[in-house]
């Protein structure tokens, strides 16, 4: 088991390096340091000398990958890539371009609000998805199933933006049940979280229910279920004991991979509800073109994805002893 995990992590290293190279190419060639400097220095009275000074002070005056005039290893080390991109590998995110804040520290503090909203959204959503999907599977073929599926398809055909706009308008403004947006720390945050969580769960309900319903139906049509039924087990018992257990693999694939991303927050939700999480952080950085932050978030995102993949593989072995490591 341990060797398997280690091997998986070793496999991940080239991917991480690849991501790092790719982001360096994208971000340093797309947004030249001149652009960055001008944007950050402001709108009034920006001279070329100031741009040059800014670049020099922030280390953006170097070439991206290869510094020909330098000697020896300095050819490689005196570059933007070596100074700015490589340190990401050991989670040294550096400072933001725009206001010189410590990105690592910022990520640590912003992670919690993100988690505060995404964790309840995720668990509540999953439970609700599974429950409704199982109901539909149980009553398959009845009009309940038919309309349930129709409703799910209708719900997934509506853009998330409509859910958010409509929810804020109805529950926040007209009914005055919740604060329209905002956030607070500790227990005071609860009243702010209800609205986004409800909207978040609703907006993903359609897709979730439809997906898990097919998963359950696939299991139900298998031979062992027929055997179980033949044995005289009630439909409910069949569904909850046998089908659910065996449907765990597809469910896990879907679920485990997204667990690390809970830290990552949701761009749109956090924006609309003014949650000071990582999603909001990212959108701000995109709009202000602070690429030190965007780069860090790209890197963090890929790490979380890879962690998710590894976790998925490990979790398989826990639910299904037939899956072994090669």
């Amino acid at each position: 088991m341990l060797t398997y995990i280690i091997r998986r992590i070793l496999y991940a290293i080239p991917i991480v390096i690849g991501v790092n190279l790719l982001t360096a190419v994208l971000f340093f060639y797309v947004n030249t340091p001149d652009d960055m400097a001008r944007k950050i220095l402001g709108e009034k009275n920006v001279t070329a000398a100031q741009v040059d000074n800014w670049k020099r002070d922030h280390g953006y005056n170097l070439p991206v990958f290869f510094n020909t005039p330098e000697e020896g290893t300095a050819k490689l080390t005196e570059t933007i890539f070596f100074k700015k991109s490589l340190p990401l590998l050991w989670f040294d995110f550096g400072r933001s371009d725009r206001n010189n804040i410590d990105i690592g520290g910022e990520i640590k503090t912003r992670m919690w609000p993100s988690l505060a909203i995404s964790l309840p959204m995720f668990t509540l959503g999953l439970v609700l998805d599974l429950f409704i999907a199982m109901m539909l599977a149980y009553y398959r073929g009845t009009y309940l199933d038919l309309w349930g599926v129709v409703l799910a398809v209708v719900m997934m055909s509506v853009s998330t933006l409509f859910y958010i706009i409509g929810g804020q308008f109805l529950l926040g403004k007209v009914l005055k049940l919740f604060p329209i947006s905002g956030f607070d720390t500790g227990i005071d945050s609860v009243k702010f979280l209800v609205l986004p969580v409800v909207i978040g769960v609703l907006s993903s309900l359609g897709i979730g229910v439809r997906f898990y319903r097919t998963v359950f139906l696939e299991e139900i049509n298998k031979d062992y279920i027929r055997t179980a039924r033949a044995k005289g087990l009630g439909e409910g018992a069949v569904l909850f004991k046998h089908a659910l257990k065996n449907a765990m693999i597809p469910i896990l694939t879907n679920v485990v991979v997204s667990i690390p991303f809970l830290f990552y927050g949701s761009l749109i939700m956090e924006r609309f509800f003014a949650i000071p999480g990582l999603g909001n952080f990212t959108i701000d950085a995109i709009q202000a073109q602070d690429f030190a932050i965007v780069r860090s978030m790209v890197y963090l995102g890929s790490i979380l994805y890879i962690v998710g993949l590894i976790l998925t593989d490990i979790s398989y072995t826990l639910v299904d002893p037939r899956v072994r490591f090669e």
Binding site: V19, L22, L26, T282, G301, S302
Partner: peptide, 21 residues
């Protein structure tokens, strides 16, 4: 390797960089 690397980059951010370019 190519597709794991590409899919591990968060989509929105990749789109941002690419569209700016």
């Amino acid at each position: 390797y190519i597709y794991t690397t590409l899919s591990s980059i968060p989509g929105v951010l990749l789109i941002v960089a690419f569209m700016l370019l």
